[in-house]
């Protein structure tokens, strides 16, 4: 339409625009379909999980601003709280700053909740999840990658907190192997449970933009009511009851048993660290979190319907 040739123009020579199809045969009976390749051996799901963890971790460390704030947040809190409350704890031979180190380690072990909640909401929004779902990557490998990435980041945070605790605030690392065993299971169950919870809540925000507001708020509230910033014995019992439903209170309690030892047990509400209940609640969160994830996980953004 609208491209009528000028009546006086000479007839142009027959000319075909070269097409990108090039010398591709036009006939229908061409032999350009190769034999389908053999797709016998699919790569192992575990290996792909490790490969996901590697690329996720590499990408995480390249976002310099996120790295700096992720790691400096608990450190800054520790330095502030540890410096403000420098006194002793009512005749236990422990200092308030030691209490903060233990509790902030609990908080660091729970950053998976916040990181994954925001991060997966981002993956959903920027097309990562959609792209991955179009590939043969097993969904489990994606989650294994996230879990390993989170364990690694949380572990680094804990190491940094411990180093500061020891050098600045007179924290004594436990010498008994049993306490380190407790540390290991509280850490692993805590990180897994809170990561699964993070994966589950990542489906709540409408978009990546709202994710950090939606997910940071409950995390901060949880830190206040779970004994991270304010000793749990100073909270009203109804707040403690709410906190007792969530994993953070129990993680902090477990870490206090590791780093404060028997001397600190009198500070607990139950006058004991209740390690059996810690294990029970954290274990329940791992299982419950897994069920919650399986039930609520969305591969699509809301925009995709």
């Amino acid at each position: 339409m609208g491209d009528q040739p000028h009546p006086a123009s000479p007839i142009p020579p027959i000319q075909r625009r070269p097409t990108p199809r090039g010398d591709r045969p036009v006939s229908e009976t061409v032999t350009r379909t190769p034999a389908p390749p053999l797709r016998t051996r699919q790569p192992s799901a575990t290996q792909l999980g490790l490969s996901r963890a590697a690329i996720e971790t590499r990408m995480f460390f390249r976002e310099k601003d996120a790295v700096i704030f992720t790691f400096s947040f608990p450190i800054v809190l520790l330095v502030i709280f540890g410096s403000i409350f420098a006194g002793d704890l009512e005749g236990t031979g422990l200092t308030v700053s030691q209490l903060y180190v233990a509790s902030l380690i609990g908080s660091a072990a729970m950053t998976g909740f916040q990181n994954l909640g925001i991060n997966i909401a981002g993956d959903r929004d920027d097309g990562t999840l959609k792209r991955l779902r179009g590939t043969p990557l097993p969904p489990g490998s994606y989650f294994v990658g996230k879990a390993l990435n989170t364990l690694f980041i949380s572990f680094l945070q804990v190491v940094i907190l411990l180093a500061i605790g020891v050098t600045m605030f007179g924290l004594e690392l436990p010498s008994e192997a049993g306490r380190w065993v407790t540390f290991a299971w509280v850490f692993v169950l805590g990180v897994l449970g809170s990561s699964l919870l993070g994966i589950a809540v990542s489906s709540l925000p409408r978009s990546a933009k709202s994710a950090s507001a939606v997910i940071s708020m409950p995390f901060v509230v949880l830190q206040f009511i779970s004994g991270v910033f304010i000793p749990i014995s100073e909270l009203p019992s109804w707040l403690v009851n709410i906190a007792s439903v969530f994993p953070l209170k129990w993680m902090c309690q477990g870490f206090r048993s590791v780093f404060l030892g028997d001397a600190g047990a009198t500070l607990e509400i139950a006058k004991s660290y209740e390690l059996d209940r810690v294990a029970l609640v954290l274990g329940a969160w791992v299982i419950g979190g897994l069920v919650l994830c399986l039930m609520t996980f969305r591969w699509k953004s809301r925009r995709d319907g």
Binding site: R62, E63, G127
Partner: peptide, 10 residues
């Protein structure tokens, strides 16, 4: 796919 902004840092 139509649009994607993923793997930006790799």
């Amino acid at each position: 796919l139509q649009t994607a902004d993923d793997v930006a840092e790799a």
